[in-house]
Design a binder for these strands. Sequence first.
DNA 1: TATGAATGAGATTTCATTCAT
DNA 2: CATGAATGAAATCTCATTCAT
Lengths: 222, 222, 222, 222
Amino acid sequence: MMGIEERKLREKEERRALILGKAKELILERGVDSLTMQDIAASCELSKATLYLYFQNKDAILTEILEEAASSFVDFALSRIPVDSNGLQALQALWSGYLHLYGESQDVIVLTGIKNYIDPEFPLGGEGKNGIFGTAMGKLLDLIADLLRRGMADGSLENAGDPEKLARTVIIIATSIIDTVTRIPRPRRNAQIIRGEMRDIFEIILRGLAAQGADPSLLKLT
Amino acid sequence: MMGIEERKLREKEERRALILGKAKELILERGVDSLTMQDIAASCELSKATLYLYFQNKDAILTEILEEAASSFVDFALSRIPVDSNGLQALQALWSGYLHLYGESQDVIVLTGIKNYIDPEFPLGGEGKNGIFGTAMGKLLDLIADLLRRGMADGSLENAGDPEKLARTVIIIATSIIDTVTRIPRPRRNAQIIRGEMRDIFEIILRGLAAQGADPSLLKLT
Amino acid sequence: MMGIEERKLREKEERRALILGKAKELILERGVDSLTMQDIAASCELSKATLYLYFQNKDAILTEILEEAASSFVDFALSRIPVDSNGLQALQALWSGYLHLYGESQDVIVLTGIKNYIDPEFPLGGEGKNGIFGTAMGKLLDLIADLLRRGMADGSLENAGDPEKLARTVIIIATSIIDTVTRIPRPRRNAQIIRGEMRDIFEIILRGLAAQGADPSLLKLT
Amino acid sequence: MMGIEERKLREKEERRALILGKAKELILERGVDSLTMQDIAASCELSKATLYLYFQNKDAILTEILEEAASSFVDFALSRIPVDSNGLQALQALWSGYLHLYGESQDVIVLTGIKNYIDPEFPLGGEGKNGIFGTAMGKLLDLIADLLRRGMADGSLENAGDPEKLARTVIIIATSIIDTVTRIPRPRRNAQIIRGEMRDIFEIILRGLAAQGADPSLLKLT
DNA sequence: TATGAATGAGATTTCATTCAT
DNA sequence: CATGAATGAAATCTCATTCAT
């Protein structure tokens, strides 16, 4: 009874996960640019053709990795933002969550950088390819817009125009940076230095968004 | 009188310029990633082999384009920074110069994005390949560090650590953004929107660097 | 029964063999120097890319052809050397085997000439590239050294120094000659003449190595 | 008066010599296979096009270098062969001259190896390209045939068939060896080892040609 | 479902040779 | 006489993707 169908489904899901996982590893190891289907297949101990049973093409793999990474970041960030925080506090929590997650597993975060590889136009361009970023990346966009709106309302953030637009701007900055980092193959990537660099960048942004006279302790990331 | 030698030299220089120009156009048209020697040759109405008479290899072409772009930006920026300006004013002038130059000729600026293609590790990584960026890109780095130092000294900028390091951080942000833009093929690139976006980004950075209580008029870019 | 796996393996082996075979033909037809991957592919009715499924690169193809040729010669030669023969007799058997094999299938022998293409420094130079010649060519070297040693011991060969070194010398002569022959495109290669020439050369060498007063019948090759 | 014509001719000859000289140097430095017109031109401080004013094509340059080398060897050899020597003595003088010349200037000799590059069929094949080797190489052939004939007549050499044919055989051996050596780029060429190797080879040949019971001192080269 | 095998389409680079000036 | 400039033709190798089994 039941079962057989479910098992198949589960197995299928496991394979997908395997592929995504190995692809992720490879990207982290050697950079997005030099990721090949061959490499993915080999490290999964599958044939290249099999990859196409689970994903329509290379892009689909990258997109899904990105989705996952973005999604897990959003979840993590949400979990770290106190309900009663003001906008600035929330933003601080967001970035600091980012840095934490990076500390724990560079992976999840660094991968966000694939965005520029898959759809460099998001969120600058018109539609992006097929509105690929409706889901996780979109949720991230919404989240940030919310925080900005909140902060403009409670006076903790500078009132600098449309929150939606500003959210896009913030994402652009963040993903651009991360993209830059992703292109450095892991062997030469210095986690310490990069984390420090990202913290500096995020602090600049934080100060750039905060209202005049904000509590200095909220402008520091750890 | 005389001049045959000179003419030859000039013509040679013109050919180089032609090649660089067409390559630039192609990059702007279709993105760095899909630039091929074949394409460059075709659009110059030359044979592939001829390109190698003027440049040692593809990298040399990209490097020179980048060099030129960076160099012309530095020159332009320098010309716009008033001698007696304080650090914040100077920085404002720098970014606003950037935006201006972009308005006049997207090209010069957008091309800076090639950096990430040629040496994605600069200035994060160790040495980059062969210290390619000793010249123009290095001058830019120095310029920004100078302005930051000046601003920290005269109190117009937040005293936030080592100017050299901060300059690197600023460059990372800027080039990352530009890189992102470069990857959008021109047909879908909306100059107006992008310019607006860049202005927003630079304003955030400017505010992020400025000292508390800075003159608000210095935090706006036009 | 069963055998699907085996069949696949066999087919794969056949393809490799096909490629090697056609490559061999082309070399014999037009000389090593003008062998191209394109040509090999075309004559196998395969695409260039396919060749790379079976061999890592062009060198690998050449190396394997050489390996095979050398190996089959060593085997053949060994089978023709009587167990109780003295050194001179053994050497005579070796060369005469060579000529025979040449008579049967120029291919096996002529191809030895590739050596000079792949590693012209062997056995003169230091290491050659990666000791490519550890296997068959090395075995040949050992075999000849053995025969020389045997002959010096039993008095059938002139005692003219280190057998190892002398063996290298002999190989140099042989491969050089063959190399010369390989470079003649087949249409103008006259098997009869060449065989005669090789016989003369080997006879000279044989006489050069034999002890004074050796049985004249052992100095003739047929 | 007069003179102008002569001077032109002399200058032309000097240019040819320059080109040949530099080409020679390059071959010795880096091996025949990697000699390019570009390299020759550059090292003559001439343009590639100019080379074509003095030589019809690359082959012509190589051919002439070979001619010269062969010719100078023949001359040198002739000068070293005592008039009243018997065949074996003469042959010994020939080879020992070879080794001497090699010792003095590897150049002249090593270059003989180009033969195989230019016309691998000589003297095996039918006509060779355009009977290129009518001159110096032909003279060498004649010289050796003469010595062999002399030796067979005076009993110092084994009477082993047609001297003309045997001379061809000897040349094949010699040039093959040299060809092998030429392909080793100079930096890895060890003059001492090679000279030793060549001496061994020539001694084997010498013994192979000598009549039974020949004076052992005539079978050694120095 | 899985895969081995195949491939089309390119990409970069090299080189002997020609020709207008 | 000399050459700068140009090029056609090749050569090696890579990669995402397809398809028969």
